[in-house]
């Protein structure tokens, strides 16, 4: 437990210190800013599509820090040192999911409010949007960490990670954006189910991938 807390705090501190956290946030806000230019200033259209746009932007922003999650530790030899200290790969994956959620999920969650304002989303919808993000972002972090582990050590892993993650994230995207529509009450439950499944499977999938990468 002591070791996991040390790794979690060191990871989050490293992301805050290096300023990594603001790049996905800036990207996220930029998409929200550019979208009205693309589709025109029709307030009704923006309000109808804005929630879905926030979700697409959040998904794409999740992709940005993926190569850092295990890449730095693999290059520095820290992954080997964790293994030598009998720290399980599954525990490490879970720690990285938490770190990703704190360093990148939380800033995105906060940035969702200005993004919703930029897209002209009705204020009555903001609560629903934040709720869906709060439920969906942990699932995205879990998928992101899994894909980061699977693509560890592959050449061109940035593009490969995007190719692998986006299809897997489709259910979260569908139910996350779907929960914002008028008939979307049940979608929030499906979103929670998808997010929880991803969280339950991710540590084991990522752990197996990390072992395979080391023994390669």
């Amino acid at each position: 437990m002591r070791a996991w807390v040390a790794i979690l705090t060191a990871d989050v501190a490293r992301d805050l210190r290096s300023g990594n956290w603001w790049l996905p946030v800036a990207f996220f806000l930029l998409v929200a800013l550019l979208f009205p230019f693309g589709v025109g200033p029709d307030a009704r259209l923006l309000a109808a599509t804005g929630g879905g746009m926030v979700w697409v932007a959040a998904l794409l922003a999740t992709l940005l820090p993926l190569d850092q999650i295990f890449g730095r530790d693999a290059a520095s030899g820290a992954l080997d040192q964790y293994a030598l200290r009998s720290l399980s790969e599954e525990g490490l994956a879970l720690t990285k999911i938490l770190a990703h959620l704190i360093s990148f999920g939380l800033p995105l969650f906060i940035a969702a409010m200005p993004a919703a304002a930029l897209l002209g989303l009705a204020e009555a919808r903001w609560g629903g949007l934040l709720l869906s993000l709060a439920i969906g972002l942990p699932g995205l972090s879990a998928l992101g960490v899994t894909i980061a582990a699977v693509t560890l050590g592959q050449r061109g892993h940035g593009a490969l990670a995007a190719l692998l993650l986006l299809p897997l994230a489709v259910p979260i995207l569908i139910f996350g954006a779907g929960s914002l529509s008028d008939a979307g009450e049940s979608a929030i439950y499906y979103l929670a189910a998808c997010s929880l499944s991803a969280l339950a499977i991710a540590p084991f999938a990522a752990g197996a991938a990390l072992r395979a990468a080391r023994e390669n």
Binding site: A10, S76, G77, A78, D80, Q81, L84, S86
Partner: peptide, 12 residues
Amino acid sequence: AIGLADERPALD
């Protein structure tokens, strides 16, 4: 327990 020191110091 085993301690390993190779060419990578594993330091931030």
